[in-house]
Design a protein around this nucleic acid. Structure first.
Lengths: 127, 127
DNA sequence: CAGCATCCTGCGTGATACTG
DNA sequence: CAGTATCACGCAGGATGCTG
């Protein structure tokens, strides 16, 4: 009977990961934790992101109510982005994920190395 | 000065999401929480996964030390998969993510609807 | 400054058929 | 049963140029 609950857990988690599991979302959320930032400030803060991807990421975050977009109709224009309460809440599981990452990264890297070594051996045998 | 730490947080989290953010990993981890399972048991438990993707997902999990693979050289062959300690630890942030998902899904859906409505209006104006 | 439009490519994924 | 091999494809994401 926990089966159904488990399936539900899986489903909701997978959905969330689908939402935030792309290349840039968590990075954007993360820099926005510092407070309200302008478009180019975010752009400079995240190494390697293209204008296109930043715009898309911000738009999807705004769409889902995770960030607010504030336009100041000045010249030149100015647009501020800020995490909403919902967005700040997301930091909780994100920090949990981060904790796991930091704590277990060495173990993962070690396992990966062991696995690579085993494969090397298997390769030699068959050659 | 929290800047650097923030950047590190972001980096490690992004890396982790890159690891588990694919389409099937969390689903597989999730069913394996129930205990040791055979290949086809997992296959049946996860609706829609192909043999190919199940194999790839399991192999990557094994590579990173998140699951163990045990082969029984019987005929027909039998292979058991089981979460390692490392894999079970992953359930902690996963549950955190799940909690967030359940709690805030309504808010996200509502925001999404509001956004769609606003876009509809914007569309009308310009037509 | 803060984007949008367009073109292009690689990679993750799916479908199908075959094997020890 | 527990995979492997091959093909095919969509789409996330990158590069570049243009605009209000």
């Amino acid at each position: 009977m926990p089966r159904i609950h488990t399936a539900a857990l899986c489903q909701a988690t997978a959905e969330t990961l689908d939402r935030i599991g792309d290349k840039w979302t968590v990075l954007v959320v993360n820099v926005l934790e510092e407070g309200s930032l302008r478009y180019n400030e975010i752009h400079r803060a995240i190494e390697g992101i293209s204008q296109r991807m930043l715009t898309l990421t911000l738009k999807s975050l705004e769409r889902d109510g995770l960030v607010t977009r504030t336009v100041y109709p000045t010249i030149p224009p100015r647009v501020d982005y800020e995490l909403t309460e919902l967005g700040r809440n997301l930091m909780v599981p994100l920090r949990s994920l981060h904790e796991w990452a930091i704590k277990h990264r060495p173990a993962i890297l070690a396992a990966r190395k062991r696995f690579a070594d085993k494969e090397r051996l298997a390769g030699r045998k068959s050659s």
